[in-house]
Design a protein around this nucleic acid. Structure first.
Length: 481
DNA sequence: CCCCCCCC
């Protein structure tokens, strides 16, 4: 694990370090509240430098830095090869830098490096940081290499704690979509874990939605993912200090955590104590809280979701009979996928997706774009019958949802229909009798002076049995109570 | 050498 250390460094390094310590403690200009003696590299490591002095042109150095975020291990596979990696963000008094460990170094250092801890790190490959992928304030980033050494540092007084650049939730209204922000808020609501299917890969993802509020009396939805979502305990209204959340425009404004985000729960910092005080004295009783995130179309797994209803309930409540659409979720079975006209040839222009006309000369005409193109893409528009234990309902499914329910892409369906019609039919009929949680949008549709209720499936998720049983238990209690 | 950060 840790490389055996070489013999002690040559003595000429010592006066340099002593001098640095002396100058820092005597001039009284310590920038950090927790200023201690400058860290001295363990024997065998080059002398310690500030992060902001590192460049690709030096190769003998050590830094002493705090890990402010740590990704999980990710694998990749592309034309240049495949491998695995994780990355960390490092902070010292002088600045910050991202470090990535690939393959052998990934295995070697993943366990040792923990967020919030301080390490001596010596020797790595520096290269120009791609600003497109990092918000850290450094022109360079490092990759660990075969000569990299990492040693935990326990005398870390001179290394600043994680630094936040908090904005208030109110300020989020003006934040740009996809920007990365730091926030501190009280988690005053949290949903259970739910599972969604990632569109691009079909992978199941665990997520948890919660709401945070601050003294601006604004509240915003935040989504956590994966293991972090599973481990999160929102009971007792904890204060969350969040570094590096991503701003989304879903439902107005909402937040999502990403790989480089870090969350501290009830951190021992003044902002957290102040906020906790505000929440407990007045905040929790505020009646004039404004939510920046509307909950339409949110998670069906509890908070923020369209409510879970049966088809009979939705009908009885007249959902979809108003001007605006209504949203609800239901647990239902696919009873029939109508095999006719479930595919169409679509325009490939960005964002168009309209049906094209086959000109029978190798060209396809899009009326909307008013042009002819020599290719098309297959798209799905499926009429499908769903049933729960109360009723059945005809719904429409488009591309992404249809691909999940059919278990094949629109492109595959198109190819099958033309080259292997039997297989096409087999895939369509195999889609029946599977159960999902559907999120539905229902609205009155007027066509040729005739009005009828139109239901579109917004998303389809595996049924979450824990969530569903909780609902049943709640209903049983209400009936008996 | 990654560079995806997800779901509505």
């Amino acid at each position: 694990m840790i490389k055996l250390l070489a013999p002690p460094p040559s003595p000429h390094l010592l006066p340099v370090l002593v001098q640095r310590n002396t100058s820092m403690s005597s001039n009284g200009a310590a920038p950090s509240k927790a200023m201690g003696p400058a860290p001295v590299a363990p024997s065998g490591m080059p002398n310690v430098r500030p992060i902001n002095s590192l460049t690709p042109y030096q190769n003998k150095w050590t830094i002493c830095a705090r890990v402010t975020s740590k990704s999980s291990i990710r694998t990749w596979s592309n034309s240049r090869g495949e491998g695995k990696l994780f990355s960390i963000d490092l902070l010292d008094e002088s600045g910050e830098i991202r470090a990535t460990a690939f393959n052998a170094e990934c295995d070697k250092f993943f366990e040792m490096l923990e967020p919030n801890n301080v390490y001596y790190i010596s020797v790595a490959t520096l290269k120009t940081a791609n600003k497109q992928f990092s918000s850290l304030k450094n022109d360079y980033e490092m990759s660990f290499n075969g000569g990299t050494q990492v040693v935990p540092c326990h005398e870390d007084n001179s290394i600043p704690a994680m630094q936040f650049d908090f904005i208030s939730i109110e300020q989020l209204e003006k934040a740009e979509k996809n920007s990365i922000v730091d926030l501190i808020g009280v988690c005053h609501e949290y949903a259970d874990i739910s599972t969604v299917i990632q569109k691009s890969t079909g992978r199941e993802l665990k997520k948890r939605d919660l709401k945070i509020i601050d003294h601006s009396k604004r509240s915003v939805n935040l989504t956590m993912w994966g293991e972090q979502a599973e481990k999160f305990d929102g009971s007792g209204c904890p204060v969350l200090a969040i570094k590096g959340a991503r701003v989304s425009d879903f439902g107005g404004v909402s937040l999502s955590l990403i790989g480089s985000s870090t969350v501290q729960i009830n951190p021992d910092i003044s902002e957290a104590h102040q906020l906790k005080g505000w929440w407990e004295s007045t905040g929790c009783n505020s009646s004039d809280v404004i939510s920046l995130s509307n909950n339409r179309g949110g998670s069906s797994g509890g908070m923020g979701g369209g409510p879970l209803k049966t088809f009979a309930e939705a009908k009885r409540e007249g959902l979809g009979s108003r001007d605006q659409p209504d949203f609800y979720s239901c647990k239902a079975i696919v009873t029939l996928v109508k095999k006719e006209n479930l595919l169409y040839r679509a325009c490939t222009s960005e964002g168009c997706n309209k049906k094209v006309t086959d000109m029978n000369n190798g060209m396809y005409r899009c009326e909307k774009c008013n042009k002819e193109i020599d290719s098309f893409s297959w798209r799905l528009m499926i009429s499908c019958n769903l049933a729960d234990f109360t009723e059945s309902l005809w719904v429409t499914m488009f591309q992404d949802v249809g691909e999940i329910v059919l278990g094949s892409t629109a492109q595959e369906m198109g190819a099958m229909k033309e080259e292997n019609p039997d297989m096409f039919l087999a895939v369509v009929s195999a889609a029946s009798f599977k159960e999902y949680t559907f999120k539905l949008r229902v609205k009155m549709d007027t066509y040729n002076d005739e009005s009828r209720l139109k239901t579109i499936v917004q998303s389809v998720e595996p049924v979450n049995p824990v969530e569903y049983n909780k609902r049943l238990i709640k209903e049983i209690k209400e009936m008996s109570g």
